[in-house]
């Protein structure tokens, strides 16, 4: 892991100003930012670990915990909100028993709400494992979660 981190840091010429993109690349490589990964970034870049930790927790794009096998994002942009996204969020929480930003104990599902995805014509929108599902409602969400393997 340390080697990979070092390689990514070198790819940016060891430039401290690329801390955010470096962390994005490391997260892409390992799925999340582990403690070891952050420590390696700090060492390779010569930025104090307190600053690396600060940046890692400041930006929403970073996850310090591993994600579940299925990744469900619900758009909470304004257009989706006025079209009832909050009811869908309630439905997902009820079905998966996890709240926004959480991963189920069996590491099967991660659920997060996201800012606008910019596909407002299709709101409310769910992105499940990278695939867009538009004009969602409660019934369609239930069906989608069942299709992903959720036993209800």
């Amino acid at each position: 892991m340390e080697e990979k981190v070092s390689e990514i840091v070198q790819g940016y010429g060891g430039d401290k100003s690329y801390l955010v993109p470096i962390m994005q690349d490391v997260q892409k490589e390992f799925g999340y930012l582990s403690r070891d990964a952050l420590t390696a970034i700090s060492a390779n870049l010569g930025v104090p670990i307190s600053r690396v930790y600060e940046v890692a927790t400041f930006y929403k794009a970073f996850s310090l915990k591993p994600k579940g096998r299925h990744h469900i994002s619900l758009c909470m942009g304004t257009a989706c909100h006025v079209r009832g996204a909050e009811l869908i969020s309630g439905n997902i929480t009820d079905m998966l028993k996890i709240k926004d930003g959480e991963t189920s104990a069996d590491m099967e599902y991660s659920f997060e709400t996201v800012g606008c995805l910019g596909a407002c014509a299709l709101g409310p929108i769910i992105v499940a494992d990278g695939e867009y599902h538009g004009e969602m409602n409660i019934a369609k969400t239930t069906k989608l979660l069942k299709k992903l393997g959720k036993k209800v």
């Binding site: 104090p48 307190s50 930790y53 600060e54 400041f58």
Partner: peptide
């Protein structure tokens, strides 16, 4: 720099 901020 032993201490810093976390989250926002």
């Amino acid at each position: 720099s032993a201490i810093g901020f976390s989250f926002r």
